[in-house]
Write a protein that binds this DNA or RNA. Sequence first.
DNA 1: TACTTAATTAAGTACAAATATAAATACTTA
DNA 2: TAAGTATTTATATTTGTACTTAATTAAGTA
Lengths: 111, 111
Amino acid sequence: MIIRRDVFQAIADPTRRQIINMVANQPLNVNTIADSFDVSRQAISLHIKILIECELLKIKKQGRERICEAQLDQLNEVSVWIDQYRQHFEQKLDNLETYLDKLKKERQHGK
Amino acid sequence: MIIRRDVFQAIADPTRRQIINMVANQPLNVNTIADSFDVSRQAISLHIKILIECELLKIKKQGRERICEAQLDQLNEVSVWIDQYRQHFEQKLDNLETYLDKLKKERQHGK
DNA sequence: TACTTAATTAAGTACAAATATAAATACTTA
DNA sequence: TAAGTATTTATATTTGTACTTAATTAAGTA
């Protein structure tokens, strides 16, 4: 099977977005991730493979387990693409500023 | 054909991203858009249909022509999703602030 | 060594997506 | 009204995606 290794394609799938969401909070092994979904472990394994190929995820072997860790730098590509149209959809610029301030404070106070 | 009407899916296709880019600058009719691509007009017509269904594009009939206009509010959904991971990929938060200031000034001085 | 657990690889199926060609619709103009 | 232009709809084909079950690899454990 030929897979299109492209961040936009990677995040197009809702299952993959959910996987990203799960591991963004904390690293998890494959089975723990798979347990959250109704599909087979093999199906999740493939989604993870796609995310790894798009460099949105990295694997750390730990015994027989494979721990999935988020590596979201590549999301920047999407962010940059979106940003060029921000003026087209951002109603209130101030909201983003408020958000930024919040984010900044969270950082300063250790998450 | 059942199409997944979802903004993430809509922007997953590079052709559709390019169409968005074209009409974001100026409204264009279908044929003008199609001329920029190697594929058939019908294929572009379908891409446009998908973009309309995802509300990223709207059509204004003008005689026998159909003018495509960008309507990018729905990109906000992607933006919000990306934003929650911004701290994972934004190297310097200050850069964003600088960017925001710039954007703000551009707005104030009428683009 | 045999058994269990974690995860992948392999093979196959069903359906969705992207495209093409052909025909139809709708409007404009000679 | 016939011919031309703009675009969509219909139909078919090819490729890609998401998924399944079965088998395999690898690492712990009894």
